[in-house]
Design a binder for these strands. Structure first.
Ligand code: ZN
Ligand code: ZN
Ligand code: ZN
Ligand code: ZN
Lengths: 594, 594
DNA sequence: TAGGGTCAAGGCTACG
DNA sequence: CGTAGCCTTGACCCTA
């Protein structure tokens, strides 16, 4: 229908305007009064004074409602001519507030006479207007209030026009404008497959280097990056075939070859680590043998994840680490909790523990131990959440920006972006962005309870293998409706377009699918934080101390299940979550680093 | 002139009645005659009502006004529900006399705290009502007086109407003869106005009723709602005799209930503050002590909220409950934590506790005790969060719907809504929606650690006073860009438009401003959950056992600060949060129920 | 939407 | 000083 259309349009305008001028300005800003005045005081044909004049008059009632909405606390009549309060309309000839309206009426009706005790020049404002009736009444008269002249309507009109004029001059609020992602111009037409491949390889190398480097410094600022990592100009790119030449660069997508090269790459990188541990040569030679425990665990893990009903049975046998020494502390926990509640008397009769379902099922011993697991889960979850908040700040800022972009419909930036930017610029920014992220991730995991116990080489391996996973999970909110709102340094919007250019269509599509699936879960930040940690602790073939990792994995599985309990996640959610985990595990593509 | 016509009309009505009545007005009247001239000096040429028709009109207007006043003052409001004196109107929720009105106001405004020295069961009547302030104040509360606007008592206007209605039909006046009933009958002519007014009042009444009802059943489904609560048609409004009969027998009913509740008062409530002073004669004389603790606590609380730097100094003295017996458990906690970490070996070397800033500062003893506070905060926060998730499910569903509406731009529904719906429909749905919400809120708070310890009457009072606050906080996400996306039963969109119709513009605007301010904080759901609990535990003058409440308030202040710590909230956030809290506390408007 | 009306809140001011 | 009756105020509502 026309009405709803019009209405929607109008309202959208309204909302947009509201957004800009809200809350701060409403109280006494004249600039918003401007449209209100013309809206309220004029016949229907004069509605919509701001922009398009395409309005039919029959919408006046709707509009007046909108007008009210838009005005909110701002009043369309400006201020009271007597006391400067907000006016509610034209009363007895002039714009006044309700108070002055009533005051004048009463004064007239009762023929009141007032006397000023302060010198007949009191300044009136909404707070003190009742202090001196004499001056208030005087002001009423002087301002032109008239009791018998009301029917004429001349003064109101004149006043209105005057008010409109005076208000029209006071300027508009300037719309906040944020600069578009423009930057440099031009393009290089020769974005070939070779170049992309070289980019990727280089990226991977840099990543490994970075990880080790940062790790070896305990997370401090990395001092010396390789030269090729710092600056990546186009000319440099063309010349840096040294790496890509190895990859021969013959044909389209690279799954197999990349697979191999990646593995060899990882292997080599690992060994280059300065930590210089003495790994079992046999294990290195045939690390296939280590596969079995992982697979077993993964199977059980996923079984656990799949159907909670099974948990009760499965968990008893599958999770076993703590069951041995648990009983002794079970009592201890109980005693402690009693003491705790005794101390915190106001809470004492309440059951302060959240109800747990999944996490209880996951826990091997169901009874007293639950208590200590509760406490542990609650605390480490808080800890990890806090850590995550710290480290996801940049993402959140970009997210806000993204939302603003979407709200303003400035998706065109996307097109502009791809038109104006060059591949090299994007690439360069991408490379620039990595050290910061790697450092942040390392700092994050180093503070996660238990993870700092992992030996250096395992830590670095895990980081290398899953860095991109972490990145994706952390930045999943920046993937909105099939578009990426990732931002790189130099204010470059790393759109899907560029991602495809750099990572290839297959990977990009997979990535977007994955993120979509993840976003469908609407995980909270806390869940995401725990998700990342869980991913970190998932079995990894290249990890030496897999027992430790498995222990941790149990803890963090319980932790995230505890959080799922808090969030009342249903079985469907759990099933989807499991699918995502599986996808992460099985798909090498995602485990390629960026 | 029209004016003189009017005056003439009035004159006919009121002739001959004035001499006796206007003894007071003589003070003003002589001046009245003179000032016509001073007024004439004003530019308003029309302003000379007294020049020609002069005195007669003057007198008549005076008289009519007087007459109105007199009529109004003698309007049958029945007796004061507190002292049985003649009531002059509805004050703070119930029919009271001027004295009790003023007394209650002074008591609340000045935080008076009274003590009865006669056994807490003084019988109040107009003669002795000043004998015991404690019992008078107690009676005020019991009768349902509420400064914050919640009315537990009768609906004055509805009551009035019903009384008149019944009187007209039966010709029977139960207790007292009211003069000039016919005129009041005439006043009833404006039906729609009265209806809306009655709606609001009834809403308030129903709320109180519901709260008490549900509470008395321990949160179970309330079986018998009053009929008028279930369905609210316009015809019903006029015919609801069931209630009026009950209202007619107010007196007895009240006496009974008062007896009962007085019993409960005696039992658990009355003023057994451990200050335990003997009956100081001076105290008996003045019969009161300051209710200083509240103010002190609030002041400190807000101070603590304001500048965290001050926390260190302030907190030591302001928070004191646990410091006594804390040391013993501090060691215990420490030991427990060691054991805990010993058991959970994989985590043992890590600091599993989140970093806390605000909450630590708030805690009185900074060292070992932090541990147990950590644990407590972490656990109860989880608990409350889970509870909140359970009870905010309907809101979340509506939120999703709202987002869909916004995404589809189907705001037109709003217009359609207002076009097709009638006030009665909205009203009816609104009323329907309330029991569910009240029940949900009660169930929520009953599970919040510590709150179930609060005695029933305090619990009911708090709930009544703050129900709307809870509603607003829980549904804050449904206020989007100046529009409300609240949904009532029967799929009715409770838009701002309807809210204005039902709650009035002022309240609605204030509400939207408030929610805007709150939404600007982007609180997480967990923070909102804790916010609600914090609001529940904020000092309330109408609560008897304020010590317990204060203890809980400290816990939940610490809890929410702990959460702020996790979320890395900055000082600006804290300042804004403090402002919101202050606003909630100070603004009666928000504390009116819906 | 202006004018008129309503009435609870709160201010004022003698009284005790 | 607290009390309480009287009075003004103004946010809200109605109707035309
Ligand atoms: Zn004014
Ligand atoms: Zn003056
Ligand atoms: Zn009384
Ligand atoms: Zn008493």
């Amino acid at each position: 229908m026309e009405i709803s259309n019009e209405f929607g349009k109008q309202l959208r305008d309204t909302i947009g305007l509201d957004e800009a001028t809200n809350s701060e300005l409403v109280l006494y800003k004249p600039n918003t009064v401007n449209n209100g005045l013309s809206c309220a005081s004029t016949p229907a044909n004069q509605f919509n004074p701001n922009s398009n004049s395409s309005n039919s008059g029959d919408l006046s009632s709707l509009k007046s409602y909108q007008n009210k909405l838009r005005r909110k606390s701002t009043f369309p009549f400006g201020k009271c001519k007597v006391c400067n309060d907000k006016a509610t309309g034209v009363h007895y000839g002039i714009s006044t507030c309700e108070g002055c309206k009533g005051f004048f009426k009463r004064s007239i009706l009762r023929n009141e006479y007032y006397k000023c005790f302060f010198g007949n020049n009191c300044i009136l404002n909404p707070k003190n207007r009742n202090r001196c009736k004499a001056c208030r009444f005087k002001k009423c008269i002087q301002a032109g209030m008239s009791f018998s002249g009301i029917k004429m309507g001349r003064i109101p009109k004149a006043e209105k026009m005057k008010a409109i004029e005076s208000l029209r001059q006071t300027g508009h609020e300037p719309e906040e404008e944020y600069e578009e992602l423009d930057e440099d111009e031009d393009e290089n037409g020769s974005s070939s497959y070779n170049k992309r491949y070289a980019m990727r390889k280089e990226l991977e190398n840099n990543l490994a280097y970075l990880t080790n480097n940062i790790l070896s410094q305990g997370g401090a600022k990395q001092p010396d990056e390789p030269a090729h990592l710092k600056d990546r100009s186009s000319s440099d790119l063309n010349n840096s075939q040294d790496n890509s030449s190895a990859a021969n660069s013959d044909e389209e997508q690279d799954d197999e070859s990349n697979q191999n090269s990646q593995e060899s790459f990882k292997k080599g990188r690992c060994r280059k680590r300065p930590s210089g541990l003495g790994p079992d040569p046999a294990l290195i030679a045939s690390n296939r043998t280590r596969l079995q425990p992982y697979e077993d665990y993964m199977t059980k893990f996923l079984d656990l994840m799949e159907i909670p009903e099974n948990m009760a049975e499965l968990s008893v046998e599958s999770v076993s680490i703590v069951s041995a020494h648990s009983t002794s502390l079970a009592k201890n926990s109980d005693l402690f909790m009693r003491n705790l509640l005794e101390l915190h008397k106001p809470l004492k009769t309440a059951n302060i523990l959240p109800r747990t379902n999944y996490s209880s099922m996951f826990t091997s011993s169901f009874n007293q131990n639950d208590l200590s697991y509760h406490i542990i889960s609650s605390l480490i979850n808080d800890k990890i959440y806090q850590l995550y908040n710290t480290h996801s700040e940049p993402t959140m800022m970009v997210y806000e920006k993204a939302q603003r972009m979407i709200a303003q419909g400035s998706l065109g930036a996307l097109g502009n972006n791809s038109a104006e930017l060059t591949l090299d610029q994007v690439w360069s920014s991408l490379v620039q962005s990595i050290p910061e992220f790697v450092k942040s991730v390392i700092l994050f995991f180093k503070e996660v309870p238990g993870l700092n116990e992992i030996n250096e080489s395992d830590f670095a391996n895990i980081l290398n293998n899953k860095l991109f996973d972490f990145f994706v999970i952390m930045n999943s909110i920046l993937f909105i409706k099939g578009e990426s709102y990732l931002h790189l340094p130099n204010n470059i919007h790393y759109t899907r377009y560029w991602m495809q250019k750099i990572k290839g269509k297959y990977t990009t599509d997979f990535l977007f699918d994955f993120v979509q699936e993840m976003n469908d879960l609407s995980m909270t930040n806390k869940e995401k934080a725990l998700f990342i940690v869980l991913v970190f602790t998932m079995p990894d073939l290249e990890v030496e101390d897999h027992e430790n990792l498995q222990d941790l994995n149990e803890y963090y599985t319980r932790s995230i299940l505890y959080e799922f309990d808090l969030n009342k996640r249903d079985l469907m959610f759990l099933a989807k979550f499991r699918r995502i985990l599986t996808k992460l595990k099985e798909n090498r593509i995602l485990q390629r680093t960026e």
